[in-house]
Structure formats: structure tokens, C-alpha cells
């Protein structure tokens, strides 16, 4: 490195900015945690310092798990997220493989179409989609989301996988073809194993996007006990402007745990997925 790295310089360039960003970006989570551990009487007393953890209790969590449908919502979200993830990965591996490795007429146009599909937001489609889903007879069923989430998961995952498949050398595949493998066998046995990091990135991304989705879940699967975690927390734990802040924040903490775990195991895959849209073509 050029120039001297005195402690004072490091303080200004690294530690103070990091402290600022950590406080700014993580404060809401710290607040959720504090509130979720407080009893109501301490929470609603505005004279005492709200940051002090007075009379810590797990009652909010107990209430959430025993007296609300939170566990139902968790199961629903799990089913829908994993289901749509599998459907999306299956479709996206095929599309990404074809776009990344085959030369064929119309390939470029399809590539552009996939990218544009990625930009179509749920707010544009949810109204007619509700009708389509009820025409199919799957309104308020798992299938409603398992088939609609892929509309935003497939474009992204295909785009990401296309980039991965392109990086894998053609010679390996050609050698397998010459040895008598069919194209399909070459794909399954040779190329797919090498593209596994890409598939993992796509999968982790599908998982977090599916777990976090809100609008389709609200409109297509929002009644009774069929809600997902984000929808259930927002619509069932807030009743007629009465806020059960303690259990709301407890639900926020617990509802974030699955994505946080999935994410922390695969940070690098997640980050490479996030930036793939912008850096790979």
C-alpha cells in the first residue's frame, strides 16, 4: 500500500464509517429484539428509557407460538417456498442451459424476453392473476403460489444460470458427445455438476425471494389459516388498529430467522447471485 496507515487514518476511513452504517442499518433489528423481549406494561410506559431491557420476558414468543397461527403460517411458507423453488429450478436449469450453450435461431430474442420478464413487477399483474388463479380452481391453495412465484423466480434464475453455463468449457461436453453420450446425458453428467455453484446461488435466491414475497401471497392465498408468514403477521397480528407490538416484533424476529440462516450459510453464493444480474450478461 502507498502512504502510511496510521490509526487515526484508519479510524476516519474504516471504523467510524462502519460504525455509522452499522447503527443505521442494524438499529431496526436491535429495536425489534428489545421490544419482543419486553412485557406490555414496560413497553407502553413512555416515561422510562425505551432502550432499557426492563423485565425481560419470553411471553411474547410464547403467545405467538401458542395462541396465534404462526406455526401454520411457517409451514405454509415453507411448502410454498420449497415448491416454487423446485419448479423454478427445474425450468430455469433447462432454459439457462439452452440459452447459455446452444446456438439456435431466436436464442437472443428469447434471452431478452427472459430479462424483460424479470422486470415485470407483481403490482402490474396481481389483479388479473387473482382471476386466473380462481379460474384454475386453486385460489387459496398452495398451488396458487407454487405456480405464480416462478413467474418472477424463473426469469432471474434462468438469467443467472445462463451466465454460469457459459463459463463451462465446451470441450468437455464435446468429448462426451464424441464418446457416444447423448446431449442430455452430457448435460446431466458433465455440465450440471460443474454448474452446481450456480444452481446453489439460484436456489438460495429463489428461497429468499419466495419466503419474502408479500403481494401475491396476500391476494392469492390470504384467507383463513392459509396465510404465509409475512401476510399472517401483517394481517392477523394487527387487529383494528390495536397493535400487539411485543408479539409483532417477536414474529418479525422469528419470521426472519429462516432467510437469515439460509443466507448466512451461503452469503457468497447470495452475493454472487445478487450481482450477477448486473455484471454478467
Amino acid at each position: 500500500m502507498v502512504g502510511s496507515n496510521t490509526f487515526l487514518q484508519r479510524l476516519w476511513r474504516v471504523y467510524l464509517p462502519l460504525l455509522f452504517f452499522a447503527v443505521f442499518l442494524l438499529f431496526p433489528f436491535a429495536w425489534m429484539l428489545i421490544v419482543s423481549l419486553k412485557p406490555d406494561n414496560a413497553l407502553l410506559n413512555t416515561d422510562i428509557n425505551p432502550f432499557l431491557p426492563i423485565g425481560m420476558t419470553l411471553n411474547n414468543y410464547r403467545y405467538l407460538l401458542q395462541d396465534t397461527d404462526f406455526l401454520h403460517w411457517t409451514r405454509n411458507t415453507m411448502v410454498v417456498t420449497v415448491g416454487s423453488l423446485l419448479v423454478s429450478l427445474f425450468c430455469s436449469v433447462l432454459i439457462g442451459y439452452a440459452l447459455g450453450r446452444f446456438r439456435f435461431r431466436g436464442g437472443n430474442i428469447i434471452g431478452v424476453a427472459v430479462f424483460l420478464a424479470y422486470l415485470v413487477p407483481p403490482t402490474l399483474l396481481f389483479i388479473p392473476l387473482a382471476q386466473v388463479v380462481s379460474n384454475f380452481g386453486v385460489y387459496n391453495q398452495y398451488w396458487a403460489l407454487i405456480f405464480t412465484y416462478p413467474t418472477f423466480l424463473i426469469p432471474f434464475a434462468s438469467w443467472l444460470l445462463m451466465g454460469y453455463f457459459r463459463t463451462i468449457s465446451r470441450e468437455l461436453e464435446d468429448a462426451a458427445l464424441v464418446d457416444g453420450a447423448t446431449r442430455f446425458q452430457a448435460m446431466i453428467r458433465i455440465v450440471l455438476p460443474l454448474a452446481l455453484p450456480g444452481v446453489l446461488s439460484a436456489g438460495i435466491f429463489c428461497f429468499t425471494l419466495g419466503w419474502n414475497e408479500f403481494l401475491y401471497a396476500l391476494v392469492l392465498m390470504g384467507s383463513g389459516t392459509m396465510k404465509t408468514v409475512p401476510v399472517g403477521v401483517v394481517s392477523d397480528l394487527i387487529r383494528a388498529d390495536v397493535y400487539f407490538w411485543g408479539s409483532l416484533m417477536a414474529a418479525g424476529i422469528l419470521g426472519s430467522v429462516p432467510v437469515a440462516i439460509a443466507y448466512s450459510f451461503f452469503v457468497d453464493h447470495y452475493v454472487s447471485g445478487l450481482t450477477a444480474g448486473a455484471t454478467k450478461g
Binding site: 452504517f21 452499522a22 442499518l25 442494524l26 431496526p28 433489528f29 429495536w31 425489534m32 421490544v35 429468499t208 419466503w211 419474502n212 408479500f214 408468514v229 409475512p230 401476510v231 403477521v233 401483517v234 397493535y243 407490538w245 409483532l248 416484533m249 414474529a251 418479525g252 419470521g255 426472519s256 432467510v259 437469515a260 443466507y263 452469503v267 447470495y270 452475493v271
Partner: peptide, 19 residues
């Protein structure tokens, strides 16, 4: 850690902001 606001469900972090 600093990427957390982006990966946590928006509906849930919005509740934190609501409070």
C-alpha cells in the same frame, strides 16, 4: 451483516419501521 435490511422480508422490516 450489513446486507440484512435487503434480505429480511420487507413486510416484516416494515413492521419494525411502523413502530
Amino acid at each position: 451483516g450489513l446486507l440484512l435490511p435487503w434480505i429480511v422480508p420487507t413486510a416484516i422490516s416494515s413492521l419494525a419501521w411502523l413502530m
